[in-house]
Simulated assay, not measured.
Amino acid sequence: MLKAIQTRYKGHKFRSRLEARWAVFFDVAGIKWIYEHEGFVIDNTPYLPDFFLPEFGYFEVKGKPEYDGNLMQEFSNQSGELVILAFEEIPFLENGNGYLKVLSPNSYHEGGDLMFWGYNDMFLQCDGCGKITIQNEVYDTIKGNCCDGFREMSIEHALLTAREARFEHGEKPNT
Rank of each mutant, 00 (worst) to 15 (best):
Y67C: 12
E94A: 13
A158P: 03
E60Q: 11
F56P: 07
Q135R: 14
F167R: 06
T133H: 08
E164R: 15
E156Q: 13
R8S: 12
S16C: 05
E152A: 09
G149H: 02
P91A: 11
D68I: 03
R17Y: 02
V83F: 04
G118K: 10
G63W: 01
L2D: 12
T7D: 09
G118H: 02
Y119Q: 14
A162E: 04
L159F: 07
Y139N: 15
F167N: 04
N77L: 03
L159S: 01
G30C: 07
Q73W: 01
K32P: 01
S154E: 09
F40P: 10
T161A: 15
M72V: 04
E38I: 10
F25A: 12
T133D: 05
L124G: 14
F26A: 05
L160A: 03
Y35F: 14
G69A: 13
W22C: 08
N44I: 02
A29N: 14
S16R: 08
Y9P: 05
F167C: 06
K172T: 09
D43W: 01
A23R: 10
D127E: 15
N95H: 12
L82C: 02
L114G: 13
G112L: 03
D121W: 02
I155D: 08
A165Y: 05
D121K: 06
Q125W: 01
D50K: 08
D50C: 07
K143T: 11
A4K: 13
M1L: 05
W117K: 13
L124K: 15
P54D: 06
C146T: 05
D27N: 14
S104G: 15
S76L: 01
S79P: 05
L114E: 10
F59Q: 08
M115W: 04
L53H: 06
D140H: 15
F40M: 07
G63C: 04
E89V: 11
P91T: 07
H37K: 15
G30Y: 02
T7Y: 06
I42P: 14
W117R: 14
P54N: 12
Q135M: 06
K143I: 00
N77I: 03
I42C: 14
R21I: 01
V61Q: 11
W117D: 08
E94T: 13
I132D: 03
L53V: 07
E94F: 11
P91W: 03
I142F: 11
I134W: 01
A29S: 09
A20L: 06
